Amino acid sequence: MILEQVILNVIPGQTDEFELAFKQAQQIISGMPGYISHELQRCVESPDQYLLLVRWETLEDHTVGFRESDEYQEWKKLLHHFYHPFPKVEHYIQVL
Score class of each variant (00 low, 15 high):
His81Asn: 05
Leu8Cys: 12
Phe86Trp: 05
Asp61Ala: 10
Pro85Gly: 06
Gln41Leu: 12
Glu39Trp: 04
Ile28Leu: 15
Tyr50Met: 07
Glu71Leu: 04
Glu90Leu: 12
Ile2Tyr: 06
His91Trp: 12
Pro87Phe: 04
Gln41Val: 05
Ile36Val: 13
Leu78Tyr: 02
Pro47Tyr: 03
Ala21Pro: 08
Leu53Pro: 01
Phe18Pro: 01
Gly65Cys: 06
Arg42Ile: 07
Ile93Met: 08
Tyr50Gly: 04
Gly13Met: 12
Glu74His: 10
Glu71Arg: 01
Arg55Gly: 14
Gln14Leu: 15
Phe86Tyr: 13
Thr63Glu: 13
Lys88Asn: 05
Asp61Thr: 01
Phe66Leu: 09
Lys88Arg: 06
Leu3Cys: 10
Gln24Pro: 03
Asp70Trp: 07
His62Phe: 07
His38Met: 11
Leu53Trp: 01
His80Met: 09
His81Ser: 09
Leu52Gly: 02
Leu20Asn: 12
Glu60Ser: 13
Pro47Val: 04
Phe66Gly: 08
Glu68Ala: 13
Arg55Tyr: 13
Pro12Gly: 06
Asp70Lys: 13
Glu90Lys: 11
Glu4Asn: 04
Ile28Asn: 10
Gln94Cys: 15
Val95Tyr: 05
Tyr72Ser: 00
Ile2Val: 15
Cys43Met: 10
Glu39Gln: 15
Gly13Glu: 03
Gly34Ser: 07
Asp48Gln: 14
Glu57Asp: 11
Ile2Thr: 12
Asp48Asn: 13
Pro87Thr: 10
Asp16Trp: 06
Pro33Met: 04
Pro12Ser: 09
Ile29Leu: 06
Lys23His: 09
Ala21Ser: 14
Ala25Thr: 00
Leu79Arg: 11
Val64Leu: 14
Lys76Asp: 13
His62Gln: 10
Met32Ala: 07
Arg67Glu: 08
Glu57Lys: 11
Gln5Trp: 08
Ile2Arg: 10
